[in-house]
Simulated assay, not measured.
Amino acid sequence: MGFARVLKDGNGDPSGYRECDGEVAYMPKQQSYENIFHLVQNIDIDTMEIVNHDFIKDFKHVYRRGKLLQEISPEDFHKYNAIYVGNHQVIYTPYGNGRIAHPESFEVLDAGGIPEGEVFPASYGRDSEFVYYFTGSTDTTYAVRLKACHTPLFFTVLKWGYAMDDKHVYFREHTIKYADPKT
């Protein structure tokens, strides 16, 4: 038996996937000290591509944390930013299905990741109908819809978790009462 090598994504960042002697396995972050591996079944090593820490794909399948995702096409399945991953069928957050209403029109509005001075990752995104905010500091696995935002095309991300549209100012997923976006 050979040594396992850590597989890296297109940016050179290490993933949770390891390859050894022609087999690919996933090792969860929180269990890495226990050496618990989940063998990735039926992956084509010649066409596999690391999407991010949790996602890998080949020419026929997409896997999350080593498990096959049913009925999801690998076509255009990619990393949008440090938070969102997916394609025209589905968008995921680090915790699960992002519940994006129109994934075919989804776009991220910032780089995602951990904002300065914060502990948890966060990011804004939008589709043709809604604006979304995801933060790892909540119990939700999905991105929260900003209910007050009725004009996603006018939504602009500012700094430090603030954003605005043509009628409201937001801090993370909350609408700031009495704040005027014009000022």
Rank of each mutant, 00 (worst) to 15 (best):
T47R: 11
M48Q: 10
E49W: 04
E49G: 04
V51D: 07
H53C: 12
F55G: 00
I56G: 05
F59G: 11
F59C: 14
F59S: 14
F59V: 10
K60F: 14
K60P: 03
K60S: 14
H61D: 07
H61N: 11
V62K: 00
V62C: 01
V62N: 01
R64G: 09
R65V: 00
R65L: 01
G66F: 02
G66C: 03
G66L: 02
G66P: 06
G66V: 07
K67Y: 12
K67N: 11
L69K: 01
L69N: 00
Q70S: 09
Q70T: 14
Q70K: 14
Q70M: 12
E71T: 14
E71M: 13
S73G: 04
E75V: 10
D76M: 09
F77P: 00
H78F: 06
H78W: 05
H78Q: 14
K79V: 02
Y80F: 15
Y80V: 04
N81P: 04
A82W: 11
A82F: 13
A82K: 15
I83W: 11
Y84I: 04
G86S: 08
G86Y: 03
N87E: 04
Q89H: 08
I91P: 00
Y92F: 15
T93D: 14
P94K: 06
Y95V: 13
G96E: 07
N97W: 09
R99T: 01
I100L: 07
I100K: 02
I100F: 03
A101G: 02
A101N: 09
H102V: 12
H102R: 12
E104R: 06
S105N: 09
V108T: 15
V108F: 08
L109I: 06
L109W: 07
L109Y: 07
D110Q: 07
A111R: 12
G112F: 05
G112S: 08
I114F: 15
I114Q: 13
E116P: 00
E116V: 13
G117T: 12
E118P: 00
E118Y: 05
V119M: 15
V119T: 15
F120I: 04
F120E: 13
A122R: 07
A122L: 03
A122C: 10
S123P: 14
S123W: 12
G125I: 00
D127Q: 03
D127R: 00
S128C: 11
S128E: 13
E129Y: 11
E129Q: 15
F130A: 12
V131F: 11
V131S: 06
V131N: 06
Y132P: 10
T135Q: 05
T135L: 00
T135Y: 04
G136H: 05
G136V: 02
S137A: 15
D139G: 13
T140R: 08
T141I: 10
T141P: 09
Y142N: 12
Y142G: 03
Y142M: 03
A143Q: 05
A143E: 02
A143W: 04
R145D: 02
L146C: 13
A148Y: 11
A148I: 03
